[in-house]
């Protein structure tokens, strides 16, 4: 996922990037226009499309998920029920590669997604059709750069997230071998979905606890922390004093003793 974005962003500065984007935008505009002008017919198409999406989603679910989550997503001995978790949870879990779970370890890990965007959407539509739940997040609706406030986001992050994810969102250990992962390089969409679905040991942050606008501020702060250059020199992993102490004992004392040995053997 992120590597894909990295690959894409490598082309950002390409000299053809601007013209290419223009072409894409124009085609997009044209399509939107033609779709909009055919609105009544499109509605019907959308409904049938949706039901076929759900059927497709159910088909994938029976293949890839039902062994753990049950034939009707009702849950089983090893995995929870998915009824009511909503499209957002599926989009997050499958989009970040956590599901289908590879092994029954402490915690489903982020890995290369097994399903592509279309299949994920189908799965999400299927699970959402079972019972209402949080909608998957449309990335274009997250204009955090415009609507967010970094300072507010930082305060909210320290209040709600830092105890698990570390002050600089570098991740941290929880009990029993679980851990809160680093948030560096996570898609804004998945940050938002993580907050509204509360994956695994992470609590759910409803819109009452943290309003949608505040969620955007948090995302903006995380992105700012990610792109912040290391201001005082090498960052040493941003994990606090442990690496600092290690460096003092190894490089610091090592250099000093090396020179002391040299001095003591010198000028004899």
């Amino acid at each position: 996922m992120t590597s894909g974005i990295k690959k894409l962003s490598r082309y950002r500065r390409h000299r053809w990037a601007a013209p290419a984007l223009l072409v894409v935008a124009l085609i997009g505009l044209g399509t939107t226009f033609s779709v909009a002008s055919e609105a009544p017919a499109a509605q019907n198409v959308a409904v049938t499309q949706q039901s076929s999406q759900i059927t497709e989603g159910k088909r994938i679910f029976l293949q890839g998920c039902s062994s753990c989550h049950g034939l009707n997503a009702e849950g089983g001995a090893i995995a929870p029920s998915l009824i009511g978790v909503g499209a957002a949870a599926v989009d997050f879990q499958v989009g970040t590669g956590r599901m289908p779970m590879a092994d029954m370890s402490q915690q489903a890990m982020r890995k290369k997604p097994v399903y592509d965007a279309v299949q994920t959407a189908a799965l999400a539509a299927y699970v959402a059709s079972l019972a209402p739940g949080p909608q998957a997040v449309d990335p274009t609706s997250l204009n955090y750069e415009r609507d967010g406030n970094t300072a507010q986001g930082g305060t909210l992050f320290r209040n709600n997230c830092a105890m698990c994810h570390n002050f600089a969102a570098q991740g941290g250990a929880l009990t029993l071998g679980k851990y809160a992962p680093t948030l560096m390089g996570v898609d804004p969409k998945y940050i938002y979905e993580a907050m509204i679905t509360g994956p695994q040991s992470m609590p759910k942050f409803s819109d009452k606890t943290i309003s949608p606008a505040e969620k955007l501020s948090i995302i903006k702060w995380i992105k700012a922390a990610q792109s912040e250059p290391s201001l005082g020199g090498a960052s040493l992993g941003r994990v606090g004093p442990v690496t600092e102490g290690l460096l003092a004992w190894t490089l610091g004392l090592g250099l000093l003793i090396g020179i002391a040995v040299w001095l003591a053997s010198k000028a004899r």
Partner: peptide, 13 residues
């Protein structure tokens, strides 16, 4: 507020 991985300097560690 508290952060994951709160540590003192090594001599207090």
């Amino acid at each position: 507020q508290i952060s994951a991985g709160s540590q003192p300097d090594w001599y207090m560690g």
